[in-house]
Design a protein around this nucleic acid. Structure first.
Lengths: 156, 156
DNA sequence: CAAGATTGAATGTTCAATCTTG
DNA sequence: CAAGATTGAACATTCAATCTTG
């Protein structure tokens, strides 16, 4: 039965995502961080000074989400916004020294959690899983594009 | 490199979950529904009168989430709460006729979306994906239990 | 007008606390 | 006290609108 599979996958996916995020949030909460904030800090750490718009594209998030997240990180003193000297509209976001220090402490915690979780799979299974996620994400992109197109036709 | 795999899987999982929920929300919004509400209605439809506590366990959600969701469905007239005649503490939640009607309309929309998405995988790949999700969820449960244990030791 | 960033209103989620009933 | 349900405060997220600058 195809439907059995649908439900199993839907529930399995939801369960895995929601609960792994929750678990990671618990691990990071004592440091005043979270899964969302750490992934953002990771992106900034790897890419140096970045713009809000760049983060929006990289994570496929709504602008609101990113502004809010940066606000929180800035209030906590982990990142700073500076006006882009070249483009007056843009702001460049970078880690503060304190943010960089915190990142170096938290990254291993995430890495340990990921390793512990993925330990449930063999190397071959991990590759399979990554491949399947990639295929589904590709298809999702197509579906999303169709929806956008349909919406554009409705409200011209 | 193991780390490459970690990041690929983390980002792929996040992307798939967040964007598929977003897409489904867009599909259901015109009917005043959403992915979260429809999955709840599905559970109620399949199980008849259910308690809040039962939903909490079935979906592994926080009590707050469920009360909030039921509130929304009740306000919309899709479900009703009735006091359990046997247990004064409990309330029994069931679909209203209008809710049942809406459910019959929306379930095929979800099913179509799931089919379109999973079309990216062969039958064998779907089974693989479901199996891998199951393995990861099992491991996650262990990690979560360890965390709970550690927390219990800290604050006795 | 288009692009970058922000803000307002709403939903879904967590944790922690509270109120009622067994 | 334990179990069922609710509520308060906070965070992450979406859509839609707005403000500033190119």
């Amino acid at each position: 039965m195809a439907e059995r599979n649908h439900i199993e996958i839907r529930d399995g996916l939801r369960s895995l995502y929601v609960r792994s995020r929750r678990t990671l949030d618990r691990i990071l909460a004592p440091y005043g961080s979270s899964a969302a904030r750490l992934s953002l800090m990771t992106y900034i750490a790897k890419n140096g000074g970045v713009r809000s718009a760049e983060i929006i594209k990289a994570f496929t998030l709504a602008p609101r989400t990113v502004t809010e997240a940066i606000d929180a990180l800035e209030t906590a003193g982990h990142v700073q916004r500076r006006s882009d000297p070249v483009d007056g509209r843009a702001k460049v976001i970078s880690l503060t020294p304190a943010g960089a220090k915190l990142f170096r402490k938290l990254e291993p915690l995430w890495e340990r959690f990921a390793e512990e979780l993925l330990d449930a799979l063999s190397g071959e299974e991990r590759r399979q899983f990554a491949t399947l996620l990639g295929k589904l994400n590709g298809r999702l992109e197509e579906i999303y594009a169709e929806l956008e197109e349909a919406a554009a036709l409705e409200a011209p």
